[in-house]
Every structure is written in structure tokens, then in C-alpha cells.
């Protein structure tokens, strides 16, 4: 569906100005980042925002910065391609780079932003599970100033977040991580590329020399109304030596606690089964890091 009336587009130069526009014009507008979700929703899914506020002229919203306290700040307008190729990300969290590399195609990733992936809040957003497993926070700015939320509190439902209409997602903050942290993201989809996750599983583990799990985070995509953590599955492995058998048990637990739906892509039962299999594989892969991993769901993967 194409919209019949001309669309009003604003290009503010600051966050304050952007919020002010929304305050003034009222509800029904949309922010625009890379446009890879928004423009398609408008052209093909009948979405017709009253107006659009383009954020690309607002300074300091993109870029990746290693902070003094060991945390990593990723500006909301940083593209997926930047995340995927960033030396800092690749070195510290290769599985986060992998999750960004799983999005669409290179052409899409040159436009798509990490903030857009979060703000759009689809259950299958590829970068969300990795960020949840890293216990990332989000910075949100509005007329009243800035606030920080856990990513877990940020997602409220499909397409819904904790942001007010005039609020802008400015950055994603990954807290300082244990030096031994290893992780993995596995996107499961029938096609090798250009496909949405039927299931996405991210894990982040802190293992000691004997593969004992000091900390475990498991996050799932595409199997509940929002990307979710799987605390019961985490509990299965915490403080345990990670074996194939244990990974399988954690997978079974994750399969039980996820809440998938059936749609044209897949049945809920199949998604559940794949959560089990992918959780097991992600855990085993993570445990083999930084060495070469056994389970690959992709013909070509770089991280």
C-alpha cells in the first residue's frame, strides 16, 4: 500500500529538537534510522505514520567506544556492518559480531542500524539475543533527559518497547565483561542467508580451566513475544562442568521455557525442538572458544 498524501519528514540536528518535534506534532509519528524496517512497513504493510523524524542528522548517535570502565558503548545509529566489522566487537564479543553479520545481506547491513533492530522490537531481531546474553543496557533520551534500562526491561511485546513516543534510543551499553567470557550466537533458518531467524540462540559463559561454568546467560529469539532470557536453562548449567549431556539438558529446559507460536514459517513444536538443539550446540560451541567450533548452521561463517 502506498500512501496517498505527501509525507512530512523532519531532519532535526539534536535530540532535544527531535523530541520537541514529536511533542508538538503529537502521537502517530515515527523515527527513521536506516529505514530497513520502517520503509518496508510503509510500502508493504500498510503502516502510514503521520510524520517521520529522521535521526541521521543528529550528531554523536553512531560509533563504537570502549569506555575506561571496560564497558562498550554502541551508538544507536551504528550500522550492522560497523558492528560486524568493528575490531573492538570482534575481539571482545565475536558472537555479537556474528549476530550482526546474520542480518539480511551486506547491502541491508550497510543501512540497518543496531538501534533500529532494538527499537523495532521484533521477536526475531538477530542482535537482541546476543545483547541480552551480554546483559546490555539501553540509553534512552527524551525531553526530560536521559535514562538507562536493562535490555530485558526494554522489550515489551512484538513491536513494543518501554520508550515513550518522544523518546530516542541513543546507545547500547555492554557492561564490562569477565575476561574469560565466551559466547555464541546461532541463527537457525532454512535458508543460508536472507532469512529471518526461525530460532535464535545466544549464550555467554564464564568458564574456568576445567570447563566449570561460573556464570551462564542464555537468550532466545523468535520464540516468544519478545527476545527472552532462559533462566531455568541457565540454572541447569551454572556451577556445573559443561558436558554434552549437560548441554542437552539445558537445551531441553530452554525448549520447555520458551513460548513459540505457529505461523507460516514454522510450527511452535518445531521451534521448540530447535531451541533445544540450538541451545545445546551454542553451549558446546562457546565452550570450545576461542578454538574452532563444531556446530555450524551456516555454510560460511566468519566468527
Amino acid at each position: 500500500m502506498r500512501r496517498p498524501e505527501p509525507l512530512e519528514i523532519f531532519q532535526p540536528a539534536s535530540i532535544r529538537e527531535a523530541s520537541a518535534i514529536v511533542k508538538e506534532k503529537g502521537p502517530g509519528g515515527r523515527f527513521l534510522a536506516g529505514g530497513t524496517d520502517l520503509v518496508i512497513a510503509m510500502k508493504e504493510k500498510g503502516l502510514s505514520p503521520k510524520y517521520v523524524v529522521d535521526l541521521k542528522r543528529v550528531p554523536n548517535l553512531s560509533g563504537i567506544c570502549e569506555e575506561a570502565d571496560g564497558s562498550l558503548t554502541i551508538g544507536a545509529l551504528t550500522t550492522m556492518r560497523e558492528v560486524e566489522t568493528s575490531p573492538a566487537v570482534c575481539k571482545r564479543f565475536p558472537f555479537l559480531a556474528q549476530s550482526a553479520a546474520e542480518v539480511g545481506s551486506i547491502q541491508i547491513r550497510n543501512r540497518a542500524t543496531i538501534g533500529g533492530n532494538m527499537a523495532n522490537a521484533t521477536p526475531s531481531a538477530d542482535v537482541a539475543p546476543a545483547l541480552l546474553a551480554l546483559e546490555a543496557g539501553v540509553k534512552i533520551a527524551g525531553a526530560a533527559g536521559e535514562r538507562t534500562l536493562n535490555l530485558g526491561e526494554f522489550f515489551r511485546g512484538p513491536g513494543q518497547t518501554a520508550m515513550l513516543p518522544e523518546e530516542i534510543l541513543t546507545a547500547i551499553v555492554i557492561p564490562a565483561a569477565h575476561p574469560n567470557l565466551v559466547g555464541e550466537y546461532i541463527k537457525f533458518s532454512p535458508r543460508e542467508m536472507m532469512d529471518l531467524a526461525y530460532v535464535g540462540v545466544a549464550v555467554a559463559l564464564v568458564l574456568d580451566g576445567k570447563k566449570r561454568c561460573d556464570a551462564a546467560r542464555i537468550a532466545l529469539g523468535a520464540v516468544s513475544p519478545t527476545p527472552m532470557r532462559a533462566p531455568k536453562a541457565e540454572a541447569v548449567i551454572e556451577k556445573q562442568i559443561l558436558t554434552e549431556e549437560l548441554a542437552q539438558r539445558a537445551g531441553d529446559e530452554a525448549a520447555r521455557e520458551c513460548k513459540p507460536i505457529s505461523d507460516v514459517r514454522s510450527s511452535a513444536e518445531y521451534r521448540r525442538a530447535m531451541v533445544g538443539a540450538m541451545t545445546k550446540r551454542a553451549l558446546l560451541n562457546a565452550a570450545e572458544r576461542p578454538g574452532p567450533v563444531a556446530w555450524t548452521e551456516r555454510r560460511e561463517r566468519r566468527y
Binding site: 532454512p190 535458508r191 542467508m193 536472507m194 532469512d195 507460516v264 514459517r265 555454510r299
Partner: peptide, 29 residues
């Protein structure tokens, strides 16, 4: 062989009339 199926539901509606859910093989497949 591996992907394609234009799904018509029990109301006669095509459920996947787009390349998002109608899967052709890509170069990597």
C-alpha cells in the same frame, strides 16, 4: 526441492506472497 511452497490456507488465502516467506534458493544455498 528444499524451500518453495506457495501456501494457500483453508480460506483460500495465499499466506506467503512475498520473498520474506516464499523462499527461493540464494547463491549460498
Amino acid at each position: 526441492a528444499l524451500h518453495e511452497h506457495l501456501v494457500v490456507d483453508d480460506q483460500g488465502r495465499v499466506r506467503n506472497p512475498s520473498f520474506l516467506d516464499y523462499h527461493l534458493a540464494t547463491s549460498l544455498d
